[in-house]
Design a protein around this nucleic acid. Structure first.
Lengths: 143, 143
DNA sequence: ATTGCAGATGCAAATATTTTGCAACGGTAG
DNA sequence: CTACCGTTGCAAAATATTTGCATCTGCAAT
């Protein structure tokens, strides 16, 4: 099943088909996916939705998967492999989603500020941008 | 009803009781609230949940209210008055939420990058931090 | 290869969240 | 004060997520 299976076993959890598929599906998607989208991409026989939710929840708690909040009805999920930290850009008009890896994510200073003023030990952050994608900007020209 | 009412009327929408209350409730909360929490704070007679959803949706589209995504089951909402841009810090352990106003939100550079590489005209961003609040850090000491 | 156990899955149902249709009601402009 | 248009309540549907329980599966020790 590959490296993910080992990662799971190492953490003491069986590497079941469902978990392997979720990780594979996420690894093949350029975009974070909703539970529903993940389920739809499962090869037959499809698992029950509850299994997908349970596994996503486990994988998130193990740090193998990360949730992404784009202000939609449901959350999305993406692989949290290695140091793959990403930011999102969402088009308010057509819903297109792009993501990019920041050159150097210099929010460390802000995080230090937070530690100093609010006392939080910040471990993660999530940054999303919203605006108009090139295509929609072109369409809007004659507004 | 106050300034919010004028803002609504100016935009061509009736300033109904429900809208006024939502704006008041949000203005009195130091934290962004979920639709459910907003409903719970309504003085009797409480409106139907659908009314709250419809109004939140309208207020967001008018720019008077902003949604906040903290990777929870439902979104939260906050007043979007004036230039009140805020960032959140959420405790992963106890769920405590703090927010703060960045001294100077120097993401403009990143936004310029995005415009250059992806072609998006970025109009807004949303930045959340996750970690351990001071209280929970103390509790965890003897882990 | 076989077996036993802890944990995972399917299924059904409960719970939570959000949306929609429609008739009655309320806010605003004149 | 009246008329009109948009809003609200209510009921119901659609969507999203969680949970209990019996059965099945992955894993490790034979």
């Amino acid at each position: 099943m590959g490296p993910p299976a080992e990662a799971l076993r190492k953490l003491g959890y069986p590497a079941t088909r469902g978990r392997g598929e979720i990780l594979r599906i996420l690894s093949e998607s350029p975009l974070p996916l909703s539970p529903r989208e993940i389920l739809d991409r499962f090869p037959a026989p499809r698992p029950d939705a509850s299994t997908v939710y349970r596994n996503l929840s486990l994988l998130v708690s193990l740090g193998l998967v990360r949730s992404v909040a784009l202000h939609e009805r449901s959350r999305r999920y993406e692989l949290a492999t290695d140091g793959s930290h990403r930011h999102r850009v969402v088009c308010r008009r057509c819903g297109r989603i792009d993501s990019f890896q920041p050159r150097r994510c210099d929010l460390s200073r802000l995080e230090a500020d937070i530690r100093g003023t609010l006392g939080y030990d910040v471990k993660e952050h999530s940054l999303e941008f919203f605006g108009a994608c090139p295509k929609c900007r072109a369409t809007e020209e004659g507004r």
